[in-house]
Amino acid sequence: MNILFVADPLATFKIYKDTTFAMMRELQRRGHAVAACEPQHMQWQSGQPVSALVRRITLTGDASDWYHVEHQGREALRDFDAVLMRKDPPFDSEFFYATHLLEQAEREGARVFNSPRALRDHPEKLALMEFAQYAPPTLVTRSPEAIRHFHTEQQDIILKPLDGMGGTGIFRVGPDGMNLGAIIETLNQGGATSVMVQRYLPEIAAGDKRLLLIGGQVAPFVLARIPQGGEVRGNLAAGGKGVAQPLTDADRRVAEAIAPTLAERGLLLVGLDMIGNRVTEINVTSPTCFQEIHDQTGFDVPAMFVDALEAALA
């Protein structure tokens, strides 16, 4: 099969931990051809199919020079067996427009994963609100007054921007309300920007767990991202320590309650974030942690993913 990745620039990949790289490596190991482009390389001209300036690559196995470009040229997305949308957040206007081009490519016959419509319909912070019974008390609002009222009710809260990633812009405010006004001003920008507020979960000390839902199934290991020092954030990008752990029965019950619904909507790969037994985010744009789990447990997450992709294309 010919597989096209729509992703960040290849030169920016940290291949020792990059999940998209792990997908590419497993696909090539099975004899599939790999190509890549960036969202900015896609275009749609009237009367023509959606196309992209594509680089067909071979992975070399050399960490210092990990890919070789075999061919570069403009190709229609519908001519690939699958298109994998792996652009990292933020989910900004350009990401939004890219999903529209990908959806048009679908109408022309392309198979796109995750589904462009599902990407638009499941913004990563807001998506959990559909499954509120599994989430901590959560508020999404532009209103400073509503945030203050929520803090009065919950006492200990986490505030974060809706478009953040990697733990950026996350604040904790305890019962004393210290700096709540300044934090609201920073995140809310005078009422122009929505903010997500959640009750603080002390179980974060044991880690912010990343569960992987692949083809509607739950991977048997999770990556617990454990805050270090005085941090409240477990995100690896914020200095958290990633520790792979077996999936618990409690986590499995929550994940298996959510996974089929998301899979039916065209979400082949989902990163479900849990603290304790509560879901805090549902990540659908470019979920990660494949290599960390594989390296620590031996469980081949990339193989599970490619199995699911091949089954979806069969």
Rank of each mutant, 00 (worst) to 15 (best):
D62H: 13
M165T: 13
A311W: 03
Q43I: 05
P136Y: 15
W44C: 04
G230C: 03
N114M: 02
N2Q: 06
Y134W: 15
L313A: 01
M178L: 14
R252K: 15
P227Q: 02
A255L: 09
R253T: 07
S194C: 02
R199I: 06
P49T: 10
I214V: 11
Y200T: 10
A98Y: 01
A110V: 00
L119V: 00
I147V: 15
A132H: 14
P175Y: 06
Q198G: 06
I147H: 10
A206Q: 11
Q245C: 07
V173P: 05
A311Y: 06
N2F: 03
R86E: 04
I204F: 02
L268P: 01
M274T: 03
M178P: 04
R148S: 12
T168D: 13
E70L: 10
L201D: 06
R55W: 04
T248F: 09
F150N: 11
P90G: 08
N179Q: 13
K14S: 08
A7P: 01
S46A: 13
F221R: 14
L269R: 09
E130Q: 15
F171A: 07
R142H: 13
I258G: 07
M129W: 07
S64D: 13
F150K: 07
S46D: 12
H68Q: 06
E310Y: 00
Q217P: 08
L126Y: 05
T20V: 06
T99K: 00
F131E: 12
L128V: 14
